[in-house]
Design a protein around this nucleic acid. Structure first.
Lengths: 145, 145
DNA sequence: TATTGTTATACTCTATAACTATA
DNA sequence: TATAGTTATAGAGTATAACAATA
């Protein structure tokens, strides 16, 4: 039987939940993100990933009410990271897209966040790194469920 | 080479970070926690885990300033989940401990949070579950680093 | 004097409600 | 009328500064 701890017990759900939550907290602490708030960063990352979208769509994607997204987008626009344009087909709709500076900022945050984890992974025994590599896809599956 | 996605690439740090953050968000959504705010739940869980401690120690453990912890503990005390007592050896110090109701509440939240993950794990192919079981210890190691 | 915790106050983030402008 | 977004306002949650009680 495996030598160590939680994985060997029947308490896998609890152990996995605790480990994932703790690691998530740790990862959030590393890479504090260019002076942007977590909401701003998340919104910027979503626009960067999904591409230009309306303010309402962005609010829905971030699970935030439209007035809150108005503020968030306003701050990102002031910072020059997002640009808005009115939909030519419907004057009520405001389209949101990343600027070049926005894409640069997102990239910097990602690199900063990966840096800590990358150094930790390099320090790991090859066997442990391999176990992680095999598990990542399953974790993604769970997250998407 | 392995058939699937991110784990097979050299981008393990990024893939792992994204998967862990997403799963953590998902886990946070499941099990909304007995009408308590996240801060209150976290503080209650820490007291439950660490045992009786001073308000200042609890504030430090939760990375929150003492005035904020005064409020959080006050709410938990009003809810009957925490009890305070003055340190007999030093009248300035306020000791905080869980009540029976507090321990019950924490247990309920944990069960609620595990429930979703447990059902997801049961639905997983045995091979995937095994991969997770092997990886849990490594995740814990990373979280503690 | 130094330390523990509290009270007073302000700021940030988010929400709901009411409004403006387009459709 | 209905919809997209904004402005006005209020409610959490946390922080800093000033204070009270104890050491």
């Amino acid at each position: 039987m495996p030598a160590s701890g939680a994985a060997a017990t029947t308490a896998l759900p609890t152990a996995l939940r605790v480990a994932v939550m703790r690691l998530a907290r740790r990862l959030r602490q590393e890479g504090q993100g260019e002076g942007l708030t977590p909401s701003q960063l998340a919104a910027l990352a979503t626009v960067d990933k999904v591409g230009p979208l309306t303010l309402g769509e962005l609010a829905a994607a971030e699970r935030v009410q439209p007035p809150s997204m108005t503020r968030i987008v306003g701050a990102l626009e002031t910072a020059g990271l997002l640009a808005r344009s009115t939909d030519p087909a419907d004057g009520r709709v405001s389209m949101v897209a990343t600027t070049r500076a926005g894409r640069t900022a997102i990239g910097a945050v990602r690199r900063q966040r990966d840096a800590w984890l990358e150094s930790q992974l390099r320090a790991l025994p090859a066997e442990d790194a391999a176990a992680l590599a095999r598990a990542v896809d399953v974790l993604e599956l769970l997250a998407a469920a």
